[in-house]
């Protein structure tokens, strides 16, 4: 999508922040695959360190957040440890993130799927976040 979306067509943006580039990218592909037909909400993966190792890249997170921002807010979904701490510190200390960016406190894979499906439907940021958080309540047994 190259043109600026109209206000009506704009969606909440999502960024998947993982220690691993492969995990972030794979979860992104799975979420897109499970989100059904039609246009999908803007979604980017920010995984691993710039040298290809395991870790978190704050600059990549900020760039991804910028890229998915359509003016309806951005949700950053981290996996664990330094990904969570980096997102939290960017939100608390930084000025590099778009307005209305928040941490999405949800399971990484299940939350990503729920958030993308909900965001793609055009739901607002709090509804998208709520749908993803509900994934914590889904029991497997």
């Amino acid at each position: 999508m190259t043109e600026t979306p109209s206000e009506a067509g704009a969606r909440v943006g999502l960024v998947l922040v993982s220690h691993s580039a492969q995990v972030a990218e794979s979860v992104l592909r799975l979420a897109v695959g499970l989100s059904g037909g039609g246009e999908v909400a803007p979604l980017r993966a920010a995984g691993g360190t710039p040298d290809g190792g395991f870790g978190t890249d704050a600059d990549a997170i900020a760039a991804a957040a910028e890229a998915v921002d359509q003016g309806r807010g951005v949700l950053l979904l981290p996996d664990l440890g330094s990904a969570v701490l980096t997102v939290r510190s960017l939100l608390a200390e930084g000025d590099e993130l778009p307005a209305d960016t928040e941490l999405l406190d949800a399971p990484f894979l299940e939350g990503a799927v729920a958030a993308l499906v909900t965001a793609s439907s055009g739901a607002d940021r709090s509804a998208v976040a709520e749908a993803a958080r509900e994934a914590y309540d889904y029991r497997k047994e």
């Binding site: 360190t49 190792g53 870790g55 978190t56 890249d57 704050a58 600059d59 440890g81 330094s82 701490l85 980096t86 939290r88 510190s89 960017l90 608390a92 200390e93 930084g94």
Partner: peptide, 26 residues
């Protein structure tokens, strides 16, 4: 210094030390 630590470290010590220095600097 704090901003750079958040960007360059890649592990949990980046945001932790970054926050320490950045907040002290603020």
């Amino acid at each position: 210094a704090g901003r750079l630590l958040v960007s360059k470290v890649g592990g949990a010590s980046g945001p932790l030390y970054g926050t320490l220095l950045r907040r002290a600097g603020k």
